[in-house]
Amino acid sequence: MSVAAEPSMTGDETAEFPAPLEDPRPALRAMVHTVRMYVVRDIDEFRRFRGVIGNLVSQELHVRYQRSMLGFLWTLVNPALMMSTQALVFSRLFRGIGGMGPWEYAVFLFSGAMPWTFLASSLTECTTSLIHQEGLIRKIYVPKWIFPLARVLIQGITFSLSLVALFVMLWPLGAKVSSSLLGLPIAMALLGIFTMGLGLIAATVHTFFRDFGHFLGVGLQAWYFLTPIIYRSDFLPADERWKFWLNPAYPFVRLFQILIHESSWPPAWLFLLCGFIGCATFSAGYLVFKSQERKIVFRL
């Protein structure tokens, strides 16, 4: 009855539906119990299906990059052009914004826009991740959450590659190499957890409401302008700046801005705040997803 050490599906399975609970308990404890059960099962399935996750990620990267040598270049050229246009326009428009010259502004913009691009494109891809894999989900058993996870992982890889490449491009313009860059993997992991939580919600909602993608597009655009990415937080008068902290994406963006643009280590509380927001969002996304997961196959 032991589970094989290797990721294989030879493990025996018993599952009861609806997943039973012990004696009637207070609602909260019953819920905790159910969630714990889901988590145990998903950790086990993560172990068994990591080969599939790896395959989904590598097949996508393969299709995207290997079959056209320009593939990766395009994912790089696009944000590079976008950012240089914005750097040119906005450094003129808001002349001397926060006392930054055009080159410094470019570095500032880059440090905030890169994590944003990761967040926005991950969410956009998560939205359709389930319905695009309809063929698979209806024909063979797979835990459904591997599809949003694969999308976030793919975007994460693209994000890291373009971060390195664009940094090299910005280096002559004044991007500084400092020890604070070592904090980037931590920042990326925190942002990844946050993104995964939102991605799970996006994937669930889109399966049940197929026009969610349109709402998401508009929402992301508005969210982008509400977040201090193209402008600095001193854009608002000092006594109103606290409002930025109501935006759950701002701490993450700020983390990257401090690490890359200001070349210093963010205060510990900022890491903790991002960790807290990330975990809370992930938990919320996980619960939303799990509560609907069994219905997804019938709604594709």
Binding site: T10, E13, F17
Partner: peptide
């Protein structure tokens, strides 16, 4: 049995690698 559809009630036990 392939676990593609999750039943609404009941209990399902399988032993071994399933190939649908």
């Amino acid at each position: 049995i392939a676990r593609i559809y999750e039943p609404t009630v009941g209990r399902l036990t399988t032993r071994g690698r399933i190939a649908p």
